[in-house]
Design a protein around this nucleic acid. Sequence first.
RNA 1: GACCCGGUAGCUCAGUUGGUUAGAGCAUCUCACUUUUAAUGAGAGGGUCCUGGGUUCGAGUCCCAGCCGGGUCACCA
Length: 498
Amino acid sequence: MIRSEQETIRLSSLQQIRDLGIDPYPADEFIISHRSKDLAENFKIDKEVTMAGRLMSRRIMGKASFAELKDSEGTFQLYINRDEICPDEDKTLYNTVFKKLLDRGDFIGIKGKTFLTKVGEPSVKVSDITILAKTIRPLPAVKTDEEGKVHDAFVDPELRYRMRYVDLAVNDHVKDTFVARSKIIKAIRDNFNSQGWLEVDTPVLQNIPGGAAARPFTTHHNALDIPLYLRIANELYLKKLVVGGFEGVYEFSRNFRNEGMDRTHNPEFTVLELYVAYKDYKWMMGAMENLIGDVCKAVHGKTKATLAGTEIDFTPPFARVTMRDAILEHTGLDIDQHDEDRLRVECEKLGINNDSSMGRGKLIDELFGEKCEGNYIQPTFITDYPIDMSPLTKAHRDKPGYTERFELLINGTEVANAYSELNDPIDQKERFESQLALAERGDDEAMFIDQDFLRALEFGMPPTAGVGIGIDRLVMMLTDQTSIQEVLFFPQMRPESN
RNA sequence: GACCCGGUAGCUCAGUUGGUUAGAGCAUCUCACUUUUAAUGAGAGGGUCCUGGGUUCGAGUCCCAGCCGGGUCACCA
């Protein structure tokens, strides 16, 4: 293995540390009394503290030095005086260990007393240093100047995603995004648990990849000698639980789809699905408004957030527009006045590519996707989808040809999809069959038929409202990120060649 | 998958029309310095110019192929 100059020097330092009888990777617990942020916020001088973290920079001035210690909360300044840490004749700890053998990035533990420097910077006067873990590779030297300008930022997306540990170690704002992600998930859990809904786990490995229209990843189970699929959705399993008698179930489902990758798609992604018995999609819109308002507050302390320079207002209620009205508004086309053939002609006029495999619903979906979707920046419920695009959705109570379904759009992107769940087993069977017909017509997105799900419905499912929320996208909307890779710790990448 | 852009030191980046030994800042190393904060001053070292071909007296630079990434589009609810 070829080592860089800096790595070679660090390896040699590592050996010298060992030669001094110091373990560079000690096993002992290091007890921390304070962390940086808390210590700064409640700062008092002459407090005895022990702290641990990475040594991020050193400013050595002969017999005294300043250093930055970075822990999980932030950084804190250390003042290291030779005669304070080496009161006896032996000055090795300062002259050799601290000045020569430690490097930026090393984990150290310190003991000391708080004080204010001449210029008023809260600091710890160190009385002892313990090496906790020696680093071999140098961290990028990101520096921030007086004006807050960042120099030598570690910004190459490829390096950042492949070595997220480095990204997190040096780019504080990246950490903030993931802390926000965690807060969002916690806020959802708290909201749901407080209503008595149950968090459940359902299979990731499925015999039939159901509940969505997507290309699955396939694998093989050796003992059973059968193909298995990584789930593309967990919808059908959760509904089976509602059949079983749970009135509110939810799951943060890691889904897998063997499709393209871009700013808003990663092969594995997280969808929160929730099913509540005896409710309908109208009720669900209210539930979503409350939830997302709560979640926004958990992150920003208010129900507004900035996204790509625009303020997004998550204060309920959100706008509600039927799909028919949306298309009418943005294209002047009233879909209720056109059958499939005439709709195809109109799509042609509008420059929307179409082919004979596309049914009426698919054409409407294209029309909406191409001409309308991008216009909904503020949170908007698009309601009442055509029936042949929604095979798991209850037919609309008073609009023939439509379903009781809505999607929540934010910044022109679908964030949630919800409906009054179809619980009529006969209707469900027919819907699956028409999906099969679409597949035969050439639609490779048509759904698989899940016989066990149909059997479950025949045992009776109460009227139920269900929703799926794209958690990654929701996190993007609330953290001002425009790429899914910024909200996933380890986005999918092509393997490094080496 | 198509098109556009990029890949040069640990990090961020220059590199002219193709022309000596490929540069800068930070980082690293050596020396000095006991309240600094992008510490400072003096000195030094560090390169698979993404890979492989080609053109040329000569390639970081031009051409071809490939690899990796980013962006746009297509696909994908």
